[in-house]
Simulated scan of single mutants.
Amino acid sequence: MVERIAVIGLAAAAIEAGISQRTAAKWKSRFVTEGDAGLRDRSSRPHAVRAALNGEQLAEALRLRRARWTIRAIASSLAAPYPTVRRFLAGRSLSRLPPIEAPPPVVRYEHTTPGSMIHLDTKKLGRLEKTGHRITGNKRDHVCCVGWEVLHLAIDDHSRLAYTEVLIDEKKATTTDFLERALAWFTEHGVSTARVMTDNGVSYRSKPFGAALAVRGIRHVFTKPYTPRTNGKAERFVQTALREWAYAHAYNHSSERTDQLARWNHFYNHHRQHSAIGFCPPISRIPMNNVSNLNT
């Protein structure tokens, strides 16, 4: 190839050899500098490599990292290059420090019968007057100051059967009325409610809400303050609803989104496979589903 370069030029010789002009120029330069010896195979190892940390430095880096030193501080203390120290610690899974306090253990529970526990929660949703920037990607389509509406939900702990409504607010009267409609809906589906779990919101602690439960003999259970995972099934349902209903389509108005809720809720209860209950729809865990036409 080097001989052909002298005859037909660098570009043509490179094409003829099936390599790039840059590679052809490299081999020509080696031949000019070293002669035939420059065309022999050689190690691809670089001429200069980073200085590795010695045993004492490695041990000290581990000790300082476990003492929660930053990687840059460790490198400075060892008089070693930062990338070398970082690479070594990353190989020991110490590139990120563990949290000072260990996360609390995950406690999973499931009541054995439908109605033993009904979870209630709410989720604020911004009202829509047109398709917003989340869908169009144009920040000029941002709509502000049009207010809020609230998704109210009730979900059965055992079956994950859910009842939802979009209402104008989450005040005590609105929340209490939703509770009564939700309990009636569950009763129609053969679910007798024994307990209701809510967070510590003002509406849930109001006298009308408590009275609505007391008159039915239903026990009211509150979640631990600032611990939303206590009401995890409701929180999980909220995320599912946002992903599969609220943000799943480009709605032109809030009314379109609300109209689609009943259809999606029916799909969730009767057709959607739920991983936590063996990839079956929630309605399959309701006993009266076996003798009625509720699964249609």
Rank of each mutant, 00 (worst) to 15 (best):
I5R: 04
A13D: 07
I15Q: 01
R22M: 01
A24Y: 00
K28Q: 01
R30D: 03
D36K: 02
R45C: 10
R68K: 14
W69V: 06
T70Y: 12
R72G: 05
A73E: 13
I74G: 02
L78Y: 04
A79H: 14
L89Y: 07
P99T: 15
I100L: 11
P104L: 07
P105W: 09
V107Q: 08
R108V: 11
H119W: 09
T122L: 04
R134Q: 13
V143G: 09
V143T: 12
V143E: 07
W148V: 12
H152C: 07
H152V: 04
L153Q: 10
H158E: 05
H158R: 09
A162R: 03
T164P: 06
V166A: 10
V166R: 03
I168K: 12
K171A: 09
T176M: 13
F178S: 11
E188A: 12
E188H: 14
H189Q: 06
G190N: 01
S192G: 14
V196A: 08
T198P: 13
D199G: 15
N200R: 13
G201R: 04
V202Y: 08
R205T: 07
G210C: 12
L213K: 08
A214G: 11
V215N: 12
R219S: 13
H220F: 13
P225Q: 11
P225Y: 05
T230F: 15
K233Q: 09
Y247G: 05
H249Q: 13
Y251M: 04
N252F: 03
H253Q: 09
S254K: 05
S255V: 10
R257D: 02
T258I: 11
D259K: 06
A262C: 01
H270W: 07
R272M: 11
C280F: 02
R285M: 06
I286N: 01
N289V: 01
V291L: 06
T296C: 14
T296F: 09
T296D: 15
